[in-house]
């Protein structure tokens, strides 16, 4: 299992530089009081990991991985664990930087605001991962790229329609009622989403033939 994660991390080595540069850009923009791009950073981790599927695909790693001990399970598991580890690490770095930026710029730190923003971003990232990975395992990474475009497009269209025609005041009331538990609910929902997504991906890959 560890070996599969090491392989995925090794593949991402060159992309760590890109992440480093993005974090630096975020820090500079933040200290200068410019636009907050922190929401991009965890999302980038998923996008980078999706590119790892292309490398795998090019050298038929998936088929080769099955010839290794417990390859069918570990191949899928490592993709989820590596993505989540990377996303969490980048989120922690971003939160710490946000604290520093907030302190330098305003002499106070709005802990709640920063943590809630980061958890919102993390939730969005985990949602994309949970939808995308089973699609990639089922249809391949090239078709899944079209999939991500359709999903985002669909969310925007459906979201726009709902906002226009449905009264969301009931939801606002419910959210304010649950405010104290919001973080807990977000974390539990993320874990459930990842678990369901992983189970589906594992099932798809277990049946796959090359």
């Amino acid at each position: 299992m560890i070996g599969f994660i090491k392989k995925d991390l090794a593949m991402m080595k060159s992309n760590f530089k890109l992440l480093g540069v993005l974090i630096l850009v975020y820090a500079i923009m933040g200290f200068m009081g410019q636009m907050d791009i922190s929401f991009i950073l965890p999302f980038m981790c998923v996008m980078i990991m999706i590119s790892s599927f292309s490398y795998d695909n090019y050298n038929k790693w998936d088929a080769y991985s099955i010839s290794l001990p417990n390859g069918r399970n570990n191949s899928v598991k490592s993709k989820y664990i590596t993505t989540i580890l990377m996303t969490l690490m980048v989120s922690i770095i971003t939160i710490l930087l946000s604290f520093m930026i907030s302190f330098v710029n305003t002499k106070t730190v709005d802990y709640e605001q920063i943590v809630v923003t980061m958890f919102g971003t993390l939730f969005g990232t985990i949602l994309v991962l949970s939808i995308m990975y089973p699609i990639i395992y089922k249809f391949g990474v090239e078709k899944a790229r079209i999939g991500i475009f359709l999903i985002v497009f669909g969310i925007v269209i459906v979201g726009g329609f709902l906002v226009e025609y449905i009264d969301f005041s009931f939801l606002t009331k419910t959210i304010s009622l649950l405010e104290n538990y919001l973080l807990f609910i977000l974390i539990v929902t993320m874990i459930v989403m990842v678990f369901i997504s992983y189970t589906i991906s594992k099932k798809i890959f277990r049946k796959k033939e090359f």
Binding site: I2, G3, K6, S52, Y58, K60, Y64
Partner: peptide, 22 residues
């Protein structure tokens, strides 16, 4: 296997580290 192996952006050292855990 014919045409199936580790992704070609990896090095023999990366393969060694991965295989230690496999």
């Amino acid at each position: 296997l014919d045409d199936m192996f580790f992704p070609e952006i990896l090095t023999p050292n990366d393969i060694n580290k991965a295989m230690e855990g496999i």
